[in-house]
Design a protein around this nucleic acid. Structure first.
Ligand SMILES: NC(=O)c1ccc[n+]([C@@H]2O[C@H](COP(=O)([O-])OP(=O)(O)OC[C@H]3O[C@@H](n4cnc5c(N)ncnc54)[C@H](O)[C@@H]3O)[C@@H](O)[C@H]2O)c1
Ligand SMILES: NC(=O)c1ccc[n+]([C@@H]2O[C@H](COP(=O)([O-])OP(=O)(O)OC[C@H]3O[C@@H](n4cnc5c(N)ncnc54)[C@H](O)[C@@H]3O)[C@@H](O)[C@H]2O)c1
Lengths: 209, 209
DNA sequence: GGTTTATTGTTATTATTTTATCAAAAAAAG
DNA sequence: CTTTTTTTGATAAAATAATAACAATAAACC
């Protein structure tokens, strides 16, 4: 499916969003070329690692010149498949669901919020982000008629697995999961976990050092 | 500062919160011993890795028996320094600040919300979580009189660095940062970034595979 | 146009992380 | 009490990742 033959390691992939961010910023400041050394000092990485990373897919640099910011950014955009649109839904219109629904950045990057679903009668019918919260009963029909690519799970831990099973059975292939549990999903479904508590615990560890 | 002499690698530290979570769950289900093999199948790791990880600090296992769930949990709790309390503040009482303020789990783990700060006159004075939002003008005095350990940054990217500088100058040593930018802080301050957009981009990559 | 300089792509080296192996210790069974 | 089974801790091997080194190439300069 990817347009890049060379296989990019997951370690590098996890760094690509950061490259993408910095390159976008540079572009915004009308900087059109950058050397690995400059980028390294900016991003807090080593120049060697940057060259290694960027070389794991195509040759976007040029000796004696550096990298063309716009070109490199576009390449990374393509690798991360940010050059296409995604329809997404949020399950759980509580605190976190609310925050994500109101986050404008996702739309800018091509991730379009199509619906928010909940079971709480007090939440159903209210407006969250740009949409009216629907009841979970309507989920089946909605996913079927709206080609949903991504489900963002903002439900309590206790129901996380149940909801994940439900959406995968309806054909959703990508899950961004905020519930602190490891979801069991079919092998053709991809899950990315956002575990804020884990981050907090890493911080308390670092504070104790 | 740490009560464990052996140095635990950062890779292992990042896995400890997950061990902690699973061990807490086991304890809740009255399971008092577990073998590396069982835990591995539960957590989706290899038994070998688990033994290696747990052995990088003390010998909490016993041949022919396995690990005592409660004992191991307590050990990890101590390593992550979750056996003490932390005073924290949230800067930015918008969507994300709101979500975090309402998240009960933090308090349960000993991270106590002492205040929320904002500059928006419409937000200042409203109740977020358990506290009334204060104006940033009050930050200086508040931090000085409340021994704040952790600042949770939920402000727009544009002011992230400014706010980070401000809180570190007031003596805060730990930052949980939700703004998508790399903060420049003194070397005795620790920062843990939560970058939700990066996670989303990793997901779009995986969807494209 | 030739020389110098900058900077990449690539290969080599080193460090870290993960997985495999197995002897030794403890528990369970007989 | 001895034997068998279980399972760790420790060591070894393999895989992966990060850093270093440098020849090759393009640009800039004179
Ligand atoms: N709020 C945070 O800052 C935060 C931080 C870290 C992790 N999380 C995790 O994110 C998830 C959501 O947290 P939150 O703070 O938004 O909780 P919340 O209670 O505010 O919202 C959860 C929402 O899910 C709905 N819900 C419950 N069962 C459902 C079901 N079966 N189907 C659909 N909707 C259902 C509830 O009605 C509620 O509106 C939780 O798993 C939590 O652990 C939240
Ligand atoms: N909402 C999300 O789901 C989400 C997702 C990923 C990242 N983020 C990041 O989290 C941060 C907050 O996002 P949000 O959605 O809550 O934004 P928001 O606009 O809802 O809230 C930001 C708050 O910060 C306040 N603020 C602005 N300048 C300030 C200053 N100098 N001092 C104190 N407060 C100030 C604003 O008044 C506002 O209340 C942003 O950096 C955003 O990029 C948010």
């Amino acid at each position: 499916m990817h347009r890049f033959s060379k296989k990019v390691s997951m370690t590098v992939v996890k760094r690509l969003p950061k490259y993408y961010q910095y390159l976008s910023d540079l572009q915004l400041n009308d900087i059109e070329k950058i050397s690995s050394r400059e980028l390294a000092s900016l991003m807090g990485l080593t120049a060697s690692q940057i060259r290694q990373d960027l070389n794991s897919f195509g040759g976007y640099g040029q000796q004696g010149y550096g990298y063309n910011v716009g070109e490199l950014k576009e390449a990374i955009k393509e690798i991360l498949v940010l050059d296409s649109e995604y329809n997404c839904i949020i399950i759980g219109g509580g605190n976190m669901g609310h925050a994500i629904a109101n986050y404008e950045r996702f739309k800018r990057e091509g991730v379009i919020l199509k619906g928010v679903f909940d079971v709480d009668p007090l939440t159903v019918g209210t407006v969250v982000g740009s949409v009216v919260v629907k009841h979970m009963d309507e989920l089946d029909g909605f996913i079927e008629s709206n080609e949903i690519d991504i489900a963002i799970l903002c439900v309590p831990r206790e129901v996380g697995q149940k909801v994940a099973t439900q959406v995968t059975e309806l054909g959703v292939k990508g899950i961004l999961n905020f519930s602190p549990l490891d979801l069991d999903v079919p092998s053709d479904v991809v899950v990315e976990n956002v575990n804020i508590t884990d981050s907090l615990f890493t911080l308390t560890y670092l504070l104790g050092e």
